[in-house]
Nucleic acid binder design. Structure first.
Lengths: 332, 332
DNA sequence: AAAAAATGCGTAATTGTTTTCGCAAATATA
DNA sequence: TATATTTGCGAAAACAATTACGCATTTTTT
């Protein structure tokens, strides 16, 4: 309704009969200005609907207070609950710093060309800093870009060649706990369902299993419920003897269990299942999912704190590690 | 590593011995420039690492190609899966338009003061347009702000006083289908679990139930698994006869079912449950959740298309309605 | 009361682009 | 060949703010 074009500082200052510098000072706390004029100007600003143009401000401050979150995503199919929960932590923490969050999912197999767009964003100053979730080649390229442009960044997860500014999680130990638990509860034939890129979980699982660790069967699995179902199918064909499974993430585990139940395979009696990440819905499944808990909210929180420190101190900061717990429920 | 300060168009132009206008033209498709010089400049830009400063560009174009998504959120506790899936649709569709997404969750009970910050963002030009999810008072305030500042907006859901630019969903009919199904399958004692703000679902449910519609018991429920469990507790105390329940969203339904199973109440034999929204995980629960499906991805897609049309045509556009289906699985 | 310091505010420079305008050179038309 | 049109590029004016600097006042100190 108020269709009037936005008023600029110049026009506004003229109306008030003061200089634009004075107007600017009224809204900043840097210059020298009397309390009286400041109050008057702020009051008039309400009346005239004057607001400093954000783009002009950004040009001068060379920042738009925006943090970008880049993460590899499966795309269309279904949301990534792992990221979703991390995002909660990121969002709430960023709000404390009065920063704004932009989200940029990119395909696991993003081409150089697709990444070029992001490269451009990062280098042309679109972000004050970026948070990158490790796990795809694209993740590494984005961090390299940030490094080359001297843009503050933080990394979530283990990334080859990056030892600073990261929030790490002790995957290997978490998986170790799962393996040990299976061994201690008398399971004989372990399997691991997950990606082949990250070897840490598999390695930890194997070690937890002790002497029989070398028997761990491996089945490829992705990041969706559907992959979990496919994994069960595969496992039945190739390793029908398996009686316990660690899945690399919870959705995988849930898809796996659902497929098992559909085939009347009893969980945990015939196959015990442990997931990874402990996303919120896991405990509401039946059977409630046992999972290696990652404290995803804290993880996001930590990533933001690291990034803010990088921005403030203008140099890399030490990585931090979030520990894992094994949360036992009904599926194991 | 490349710690050099970013090169400006002026410095870059001087190095090449051309004017800044020519450099600018090399990257735009508006001015007149020979193919030869354009190629040369682009090549040199690679070499010198020149990239146009985004803030200066935004200042001139009066836009930063950024779309903000505002939605009421439960906050810390757990992610809102409803929004998460809508966001998938929004994100993918925005990418086609080369727009960037910012996300802004706000508390259901956000104060005027909290909203003032958003008001400022919206009016100072931080966004090219906004998408607002209805459902809280804050939603309405934000839309009013956009209207008063002549900022393009789109609304997801029914919002009082707003009849244009909206993506609506036929809640009432979806709930009707659920009520009718319960009636047709011989259920006698219906209950509705949900918020008291949106009357549409309850009304549709009641009508679907026909003659016995006036018997629908009402239990307050929020947007989290926990609320679902609490709802079951309440229902048992106040209406122990209830044999079928429509929940206003899926997490509520899942929490409800989990609590029921824990008390050895058989679902669907003793109580049949239908959820709302049909979020992805619902079908993986045991029993698989029956739900009124909302096509959340499409919904997000549609919101973006409406917003883009508003931006392009510079006037309000007609609202669209996404229909609901009743998806029957095991919980009913 | 004179000198020094602090305060308030305006002028103009700065931020890094895009884009209009104008001029010369190159090309097309008569 | 003379005129008209098109093309390529530079100078300078936006875009809308922030801020360094300077100059009167006012206040504080001696």
């Amino acid at each position: 309704m108020t269709n009037r074009k936005k008023i600029t500082i110049k026009e506004f200052a003229e109306k008030l009969g003061v200089s634009i510098a004075t107007v600017s000072r009224a809204f900043s706390d840097k210059g020298r200005i009397s309390d009286k004029t400041r109050r008057e100007i702020i009051a008039k600003a309400q009346e005239y609907g004057y607001r400093a143009n954000i783009h002009a401000r950004n040009l001068i401050s060379r920042s738009n207070n925006t943090i970008a979150l880049f993460f590899p995503a499966i795309g269309h199919e279904e949301p990534d609950y792992f990221i979703t929960e991390i995002m909660l932590g990121i969002n709430e923490t960023l709000a404390q710093y009065r920063k704004i969050l932009q989200i940029h999912p990119f395909p696991f197999d993003a081409s150089e060309q697709e990444l070029e767009l992001y490269r451009d964003y990062i280098l042309n100053g679109s972000f004050e800093g970026i948070i990158v979730v490790a796990g795809a080649i694209g993740s590494n390229r984005l961090v390299s870009t940030a490094q080359s442009g001297n843009i503050p960044y933080a990394v979530i997860g283990h990334m080859g060649g990056v030892s600073e500014n990261s929030v790490l999680f002790d995957n290997e130990y978490g998986a170790f706990l799962a393996g040990k638990y299976f061994k201690d509860t008398g399971r004989q034939h372990p399997a691991y369902v997950g990606g082949h890129l990250d070897k840490r979980k598999k390695r930890g699982f194997r070690e937890g299993f002790g002497a029989n660790g070398n028997k761990v069967a491996f089945v490829e699995g992705g990041n969706s419920f559907r992959h979990g179902g496919m994994a069960l199918e595969n496992l039945q064909k190739t390793h029908p003897e398996v009686d316990c499974v660690l899945c690399a993430n919870d959705v995988l585990a849930i898809g796996f269990i659902k497929a098992a139940l559909t085939k009347n395979i009893k969980v945990p009696q015939e196959i015990a299942v442990i997931g990874f990440d402990d996303i919120k819905p896991s405990r509401y499944f039946t059977p409630a999912l046992s999972s290696v808990s990652l404290k995803l909210f804290e993880l996001g929180e930590c990533a933001v704190k690291i990034l803010m420190q990088v921005i403030e101190e203008e140099k890399p900061v030490n990585s931090e590690t979030i520990e894992c717990d094994l949360i036992l429920r009904q599926s194991s």
